[in-house]
Design a protein around this nucleic acid. Structure first.
Length: 270
DNA sequence: ACTATTTCCTGGATGC
DNA sequence: TGCATCCAGGAAATAG
């Protein structure tokens, strides 16, 4: 399930491999497509464009597109991977996976394919994309603290709110809260300045460490090379219900907050 | 104006 | 073995 570290890993891989390549043609699958823009709008925006850069913004992958000769406006292709989306670079002769929704033929002879079994992913084209929330790795402590001031919602829900912070999902919210020793149900506004400091640090650290490990591979996440991440072996609470806390041996609890599983140590987290 | 819950979607795991 | 049911969750939609 691609969150910030997984999306960052994918974007870096694509940046390295397909920057400078030109999109020669686009195939968009039939049926209800996971598109936010219309199919013709997307195809038109991608056709004959050079991929000038690939980067991450929140959980979105941003492709900066340049038109080669003419003076057409430059655009951005935005890919959100949802739960199970992946972008793979491969040769045209490799088998087209089930649930392939888009294929871009590149001038280099390779293909970039968008595959998404659960169809939560979204493709769109926009002039200049801006994620609504702040980047967790860039936000200052003062701005971070301000986000949660006077919010009655549980801190876990606030962390998942993409309008506040962009890129934090269920895994890293739980892991950051464990490392900050804060219970997920705590009201955001009840966090002390010290709590907020710990949370800010913990979130940045866990995200950076996860990026170093190429993200977490839980179900079927792979990067653009088809490689799995390894951060799942570093998870301390996520997916560990009933197993002993690595710090105090207390069984990890799982509760549901905002319809999402939340894992925490009832002894270490207050 | 906020916050909480439901919905979308498929495959893998589980249970009888 | 087979079939039904549950569960995973990002974000939009809907409900409270």
């Amino acid at each position: 399930m691609p969150e910030l570290p997984e999306v960052e890993t994918i974007a870096r891989g694509l940046q390295q491999r397909i920057t400078g390549d030109v999109i020669e043609s686009i195939w968009l699958g039939s049926k209800p497509e996971p598109l936010k823009s219309s199919a013709s709008e997307i195809a038109g925006a991608l056709q004959a464009r050079k991929i000038a850069a690939v980067r991450r913004s929140g959980k979105h992958i941003v492709f900066d597109l340049e038109s080669a000769g003419n003076k057409k406006r430059n655009a951005q292709w935005i890919v959100h991977l949802g739960m199970t989306g992946s972008l793979v670079v491969c040769t045209p002769d490799s088998d087209r996976e089930k649930h392939t929704h888009a294929v871009l033929q590149l001038a280099s002879g390779r293909e970039l394919r968008f595959v998404d079994p659960r169809r939560f992913g979204r493709l769109s084209v926009i002039e200049r994309f801006a994620a609504p929330g702040a980047e967790p790795l860039e936000i200052s402590f003062e701005d971070f603290a301000k986000l949660f001031r006077s919010r009655k919602t549980p801190i876990k829900s606030a962390l998942l709110n993409q309008g506040l912070l962009s890129g934090v999902g269920n895994i890293y919210a739980d892991e950051a809260l464990f490392r900050a020793a804060i219970r997920p149900r705590r009201r955001a506004a009840s966090l002390t300045r010290d709590d907020l400091r710990k949370l800010h640090q913990a979130l940045k650290r866990v995200l950076k460490e996860a990026i170093r490990h190429g993200g977490s591979s839980i179900s079927n996440y792979v990067d653009s090379n088809g490689d799995e991440g390894s951060f799942q072996i570093k998870h301390r609470v996520y997916g560990r219900e009933g197993k002993p806390c690595f710090v105090c041996k207390t069984p990890i609890k799982r509760i549901v907050i905002a319809g999402r599983s939340s894992h925490y140590c009832p002894k270490c987290q207050k």
